[in-house]
Simulated scan of single mutants.
Amino acid sequence: MPSSELGSSGEAATGHRGRTKAEPSSSSLPATGLAVFGCGQDEAALFQEMGPRLGVAPTIIEAAVCETNAELAIGNRCVSVNHKTPITNPSLLALSAAGVQYISTRSIGYNHIDVEYAERVGISVGNVAYSPDSVADYTLMLMLMAVRHAKSTVRRTDAHDYRLNDTRGKELRDLTVGVIGTGRIGTAVIDRLRGFGCRVLTHDNRSHSHVSFDELIELSDIVTLHTPLTADTHHLLDRHRIERMKPGAYIVNTGRGPLLDTEALLAALESGRLGGAALDVLEGEEGIFYADCRNRHFENEALVRLQRLPNVLISPHSAYDTEHALKDIVENTLINCLNFESGRTA
């Protein structure tokens, strides 16, 4: 989930390996080593600032981990990776050969790593927690933009057409919102929704607003997805369930793209059955999101069709991306490493 959060001292070296190492801790104990793959400048600055303070010496590697650069981790039992690039099994095998025993992914989700294969080659995998407010705030923003037709309004005003939209917006207090997934992020979304005075439904027996999954789908004006991606939740909203949603309803997804059957969503949007969608994640986003594609052709036809629709908002897996969340991610990555080295984690 979704995705989250200075100075020139954090810039990586300009050598072909894109690698720099923090100063060791001033403690008399040797610093714990951590190889940080796929590390941007803002992240690097925080790792170099916070690492020595906690007794960790991070080796910053700008490139994402792959089979050919895994040797850069030699000398470190722990590595950190991001969620932006799938970690292939050959990469995991190469990391194991380099002596790596623990991977901390700088994300909540693990779906970019074959955890079972990692365990078979002797590597444990951990994730990080970060501010749920980052994704929760963004989710509410997307809901408001969707029900107030923000995309078409902004497009028209950019073209100096200042007429009112033919379709009036809706107020959240008049709507029923179904929240699928009530972990830290889903709960933070619910807290915000209550401030708007709307009716909230959950598919979770820990809440008094619990209903069956079918009831949630059928009764909600907005369905928002916050559940982890697993084999059981892949295409959780499939064609059958989308067809059972209220006419004119909206779907918001800041979880993972494959929670939603994109072709089924397109069919419902293009037929006019659904009111719209707001998507921060998308099936097939790999290699597109986080890249500059302005002068590049790509093969994701579903993305092109979605972007043509005036009632569909798309952002590039950026809901998590705040300064607060990035600090949480870096700090908890360092703590994961220390906990592994001290035997406090598997």
Score class of each variant (00 low, 15 high):
322 T>P: 05
296 R>H: 14
329 I>S: 06
115 V>M: 09
226 H>I: 06
340 F>L: 03
10 G>W: 01
34 L>I: 08
136 A>T: 12
338 L>V: 08
172 L>V: 12
202 T>V: 12
215 E>N: 12
308 R>Y: 03
92 L>W: 00
62 E>P: 01
30 P>E: 11
333 T>K: 03
76 N>V: 01
40 G>H: 02
4 S>T: 13
238 D>C: 14
220 S>A: 11
107 S>I: 02
114 D>E: 07
105 T>H: 05
79 V>Y: 04
336 N>S: 15
134 S>Q: 05
341 E>Q: 15
254 T>E: 03
221 D>A: 04
150 A>R: 02
223 V>Q: 03
37 F>K: 01
233 T>R: 04
284 G>S: 09
180 I>Y: 02
145 M>D: 14
149 H>R: 15
3 S>Y: 14
226 H>Q: 13
115 V>A: 14
83 H>C: 13
293 C>E: 05
192 R>H: 11
328 D>F: 06
345 T>N: 07
40 G>L: 02
101 Q>R: 15
193 L>Q: 13
95 L>F: 08
316 P>L: 05
107 S>P: 05
237 L>F: 06
68 T>D: 13
243 E>A: 15
181 G>C: 05
117 Y>P: 00
291 A>M: 03
187 T>G: 09
47 F>I: 08
5 E>K: 13
303 L>Q: 13
207 S>L: 03
6 L>E: 13
235 H>S: 14
267 A>G: 11
308 R>H: 13
104 S>Y: 07
285 E>D: 05
41 Q>R: 13
332 N>I: 03
221 D>H: 15
26 S>A: 12
71 E>G: 12
